[in-house]
Design a protein around this nucleic acid. Structure first.
Length: 494
RNA sequence: GGGCCGCUAGCUCAAUUGGCAGAGCAGCUGACUCUUAAUCAGCCGGUUCUGGGUUCGACUCCCGGGCGGCUCACCA
């Protein structure tokens, strides 16, 4: 019979047969004494203790992931969150009726099996079923047992099938959770407090990106989904917390690619009385500590690269890096026009004449430098025009105390000695506004409410943002950000 | 948004030059009381992403549309 509809119909008929026998196919409670791994461990302990007396018994519960029918005995594989355990159902032991009932079970159903543990001839620890209980009937067939789900569209749209079929995928998201957990431990251990700030904001600031907009009906006012966490966290520093962080989702209404997802998770942390050098030390310690806890080592394999995350990481200024990798000393091209001309001469095709000097430098760095930064590297001292929230570097005109750090050639995070001079900050916002009028750059919007906060006084502060998705990519060796986001943004399919 | 590639059974994949749309897994029937990608025999299963066109004949060629991947652009 089976097309999809027929397969579903057959399962519904089985469900109805079970119900006709008075069986609750979706019971509220499950008999369960051990998870799969725990049951095996219990049996091994009993063996290690000399196998005295009766073997331990267990109730295990999980999804039926394989059935091997031998006629008057069957083997079922039951898989739960801990792993897989085999169950042996023998007609002589379980009885005629219960054995016949196996016919109404399907791959994908949830089942609880109860009985003593034993080792089969091939030494596999197995539950010898004395009884079983249906926990939930599945109406659709699971993915194919050997190849699993390979179709990328199914994997993303129906992630549960991907997780069901592909253990490596389950591991990636466990690792992601472990990364975030280790990150919290690191920060909590250093006296940072975790806070939550608004996702819906009247101004979306803290980054140069296009926000999503929405409308609040009761307030009859438009809101933006946040594009960074920065400005609210600084308000908390102003309020008197010395160390704050937030791990939160942010949203940018821009293109998607292997390294950009529409919504992504960022850690931002702010530390009063620290500067960007202090932040850099904290970053390398935190990331290497996370790797040690999650991977058991401070090296990570990413494509063909072995990444060494142990501190200290390389530090190089943007100017030095451009000299080293491109032979351009931007000190020799101090104006926008000269730099534009030089890059144009070098074959940059898509330069916009409206771009600022800083934006042009950024462009050159993206092209010449970033792909070379395979081992963890702090790229220091950015142009002021593209860093409106960072403090100027003393003695260096047009440069601010800012770094981005790179691993495997792409950006992981961004940090500054935060600008705390409210007059300077206002001028920076105004300069952004002028840039927006002159060119096509995405710019920071002026946030008057934030400026008022700054005018109340903010201590010298070091701040940082890290893309958690990207860090997870590095630590799990994944080439696409969609492989580390459970439900990546996809176009709706109708 | 541009370019390139992909879409065939529930899943994983075939299909020669344009010539009857196939296999494995899953499912169904039967055999089998220690199997584990169980095995053996038989059977069922298709809007070939979608809408047009060319042709005696289209999974295959042409045009439009959808979704996805890669890439470029955009983007901290």
């Amino acid at each position: 019979m089976p097309g999809e509809e027929e397969l579903i119909q057959l399962r519904i008929e089985k469900l109805q047969r079970l119900q006709a026998r008075g069986i609750d196919v979706y019971p509220a409670r499950a008999a369960r004494t051990h998870d799969a791994i725990g049951a095996k461990a219990a049996f091994e302990r009993w063996e290690a203790d000399g196998a005295q007396g009766d073997a331990p018994a267990a109730s295990v519960a999980g999804r039926i992931t394989a059935m091997r029918d031998m006629g008057k005995a069957s083997f079922l594989d039951v898989t739960d969150g801990s792993g897989r355990i085999q169950c042996y159902v023998k007609k002589d032991i379980i009885g005629e009726e219960a054995y016949a009932g196996l016919a109404d079970l399907d791959l994908g159903d949830f089942l609880s099996v109860t009985g003593p543990l034993f080792r089969t001839r091939t030494q596999e620890i197995t539950v010898e079923a004395r009884s079983y209980q249906v926990l939930a009937k599945a109406l659709r067939p699971p993915p194919e047992k050997w190849h699993g789900v390979e179709d990328i569209e199914i994997r993303y749209r129906q992630r549960y099938l991907d997780l069901m079929a592909n253990a490596e995928v389950r591991d990636i998201f466990r690792t992601r959770a472990a990364i975030v957990s280790a990150m919290r431990r690191h920060l909590d251990g250093r006296g940072f407090i975790e806070v939550e700030t608004p996702v819906l904001q009247p101004e979306a600031g803290g980054a140069a990106a296009t926000p999503f907009t929405t409308h609040h009906r009761a307030l009859d006012q438009d809101f933006f989904l946040r594009i960074s966490l920065e400005l609210h966290l600084k308000r908390l520093i102003i309020g008197g917390y010395d160390r704050v962080y937030e791990i939160g989702r942010i949203f940018r209404n821009e293109g998607v690619s292997w390294k950009y997802n529409t919504e992504f998770t960022m850690l931002e942390m702010y530390e009063a009385y620290a500067d960007y050098n202090d932040v850099a030390r904290n970053v390398e310690e935190m990331v290497s500590s996370i790797a040690q806890q999650v991977l058991g080592t401070t090296t990570a394999q990413f494509e063909e690269h072995t990444i060494d995350l142990a501190p200290p990481w390389k530090r190089i200024t943007m100017r030095e890096a451009l000299i080293e990798h491109a032979g351009i000393d931007f000190a020799e091209f101090r104006t926008r026009e000269k730099l534009y001309e030089e890059l144009h001469r070098r074959g940059f095709a898509d330069l916009d004449p409206g771009w600022s000097w800083g934006k042009l430098i950024d462009e050159a760095v993206s092209h010449y430098v970033e792909p070379k930064l395979i081992q963890p590297t702090f790229l220091l001292d950015y142009p002021k025009e593209i860093s409106p929230l960072a403090k100027s570097k003393p003695g260096e005109d047009g440069i601010v105390e800012r770094f981005e750090f790179f691993i495997a050639g792409f950006e992981m995070g961004n940090a500054y000695s935060e600008l705390n001079d409210p007059v300077d900050q206002r001028e920076r916002f105004e300069a952004q506004r002028r840039l927006a009028a002159a060119g096509i750059e995405e710019v920071e919007t002026l946030d008057e409410d934030f400026l008022i906060a700054l005018e109340h006084g903010m201590p010298p502060t070091g701040g940082l943002g890290i893309g958690i998705d990207r860090l997870t990519m590095i630590l799990t060796g994944q080439r696409s950000i969609r492989e580390v986001i459970l439900f990546p943004a996809l176009r709706r399919k109708d």
